[in-house]
């Protein structure tokens, strides 16, 4: 479904390559983790996949194939059509990922407004359903609330609802739980797991925390300084890390967490 081939991203401003020729594939319904330390290029990779990277700022080489179509060759209007429908994204900062002046319900159904010709009533019905599915309390009331009236975890759920409402094939989550406290973190990860099981949506989970990835994803790619140094089944890599950097990452996990 998603095939990244030798992707390179170079910023004009610094002349540095943030992503240096990475390749990996995500099949329908697969859950992939992308781990690595800060600055290793995880977010840049995510932005390249979702097409959110400002094209005038970078030089991109290689291929980002989605169902055979190369994003790097698409115009913005072609991308607009694919993106909203097939790829959703969950961001790190729940404080800024919702429009502060727009009702939560309206934001959740925004995708439908653009990609379908549903009536407002139909849209609202689907929005309420989506809110129910992601575990937002009392959808009818929450629909009319503004983002500042929700907790961080609830906001993250609202974002997930807005991404899931159109049933995308891939959900890219860039550090979706980093800004949340531990119990809420766990709930959000469980939610992502349930959604992917139930609707077969593939997940690319970006995190610097190996244990988070291990709990959710059966596959993992380890990124270091713009390159993928190791990828494969999470269990296999945990049991038998080949790359020296991966070994260090695993060794850095506190013992009691390693066997969670």
């Amino acid at each position: 479904m998603l095939n990244i081939r030798n992707l390179r991203v170079k910023f004009h401003s610094t002349g540095k390559e943030a992503v240096k020729g990475i390749s990996f594939d995500i099949l329908p319904g697969e859950r992939w983790g992308l781990v690595g330390e800060s600055g290793s290029g995880k977010s840049v990779t995510a932005m390249a996949i979702t097409g959110l990277i400002e094209r005038s700022l970078v030089e991109m080489k290689g291929q980002v194939l989605f169902d055979g179509k190369d994003f790097l060759q698409c115009t913005r209007s072609q991308l607009r059509n694919i993106h909203g429908k097939d790829i959703g994204m969950v961001f790190q900062e729940p404080m800024t990922s919702l429009n502060p002046l727009m009702k939560v319900g309206k934001q959740i159904e925004e995708t439908l407004k653009i990609h379908t010709d549903m009536s407002p009533e139909e849209r609202k019905k689907l929005a309420l359903e989506a809110m129910e599915q992601v575990g937002l309390p009392d959808p009818e009331t929450t629909y009319n609330k503004y983002p500042h009236q929700l907790s961080g975890g609830q906001r993250q759920r609202a974002i997930i609802a807005s991404a899931m409402i159109i049933r995308p094939k891939l959900l890219v989550c860039d550090e979706p739980t980093t800004a949340l406290d531990v119990t809420v973190q766990k709930q959000i990860l469980e939610l992502l797991y349930d959604l992917s099981e139930k609707y077969g949506v593939a997940i690319l989970l970006i995190s610097h925390d190996l244990t988070v990835v291990r709990n959710l994803c059966e596959n993992v790619a380890v990124m270091y300084k713009g390159e993928i140094v190791e990828q494969g089944s999470t269990e296999e890599i945990f049991r038998n890390p080949k790359d020296e950097y991966t070994q260090r990452l695993i060794a850095a996990i506190p013992k009691r967490k390693r066997h969670e």
């Binding site: 979702t50 097409g51 959110l52 607009r80 059509n81 993106h83 909203g84 429908k85 790829i87 959703g88 994204m89 961001f91 790190q92 900062e93 800024t96 990922s97 919702l98 429009n99 502060p100 934001q107 925004e110 995708t111 653009i114 990609h115 974002i159 807005s162």
Partner: peptide, 11 residues
């Protein structure tokens, strides 16, 4: 992010 999200949604 809310603007990025809107962009991604195809707004």
């Amino acid at each position: 992010d809310y603007v990025r999200n809107a962009k991604l949604m195809g707004v």
